[in-house]
């Protein structure tokens, strides 16, 4: 049983990283209610091992547990036959963006001007394994090493997933914006 000091240390860590943890849970589950359920499950799991592990990076450690709880919940929902509306599988080899003519660069402008809805839709269409590395890198600002801890994969895998995620997002944002233009 953790002593009260570790309880207050844990509470401190939770308060500090709650926003990031909640944000990640929202992106890895389908509904706000599922995000909250996964988060609560994660927090209790985290607390049970906090005293034993004394994580060096509480942020990466907490996000790792949150992530796993989100995946567990997703699996359970799928097993229960609930439809999963989001997420089309990435093609096995997402095309690298074409290195086109240097003079004109409408794609850069489209990417810069893309609205929140376009980006959100493109992100939801990524596999969660790709979505999470992009969010952890670009929004949370985590280093590759920390992302590797959160996702539980080697750094090389983080790099290839991040590269795929970016390529896929660019393709779908540019295609979407051209369509609506």
């Amino acid at each position: 049983m953790p002593a009260s000091t570790s309880l207050s240390e844990f509470e401190q860590a939770l308060r500090t990283h709650l926003a990031a943890a909640h944000h990640l849970a929202r992106w890895l589950t389908r509904t706000p209610a599922d995000a909250e359920d996964a988060l609560q499950d994660a927090v209790l799991r985290a607390f049970r091992s906090f005293d034993r592990l004394r994580p060096v990076s509480p942020r990466a450690w907490l996000l790792h547990i949150v992530r796993n709880c989100c995946y567990d919940l997703r699996k359970r929902r799928e097993r229960d036959g609930e439809s999963v509306l989001e997420e089309e599988a990435l093609p096995p080899d997402a095309a690298s963006p074409v290195l086109g003519t240097p003079a004109e660069n409408p794609e850069t402008r489209l990417l810069r001007m893309a609205d929140a809805r376009a980006l959100e839709g493109a992100l939801r269409n990524l596999l969660p394994e790709y979505r999470e590395v992009f969010l952890l890198r670009e929004v949370e600002g985590l280093a590759y090493k920390e992302i590797a801890e959160v996702a539980g994969v080697p750094i090389g895998t983080v790099m290839s997933r991040l590269s795929r995620a970016r390529a896929q997002l660019r393709v779908s944002i540019v295609a979407g914006e051209k369509e609506t233009a």
Partner: peptide, 30 residues
């Protein structure tokens, strides 16, 4: 293009704040 994508993600992606009371509910459960 990569920088433009990053800029869009950081500036425009809606940041969903934890609902009010969530922190207290979690701490109480702990």
């Amino acid at each position: 293009e990569l920088l433009a994508l990053r800029e869009t993600a950081r500036e425009r992606l809606p940041r969903v704040d934890p609902p009010p009371g969530l922190e207290e509910r979690l701490l109480r459960a702990v």
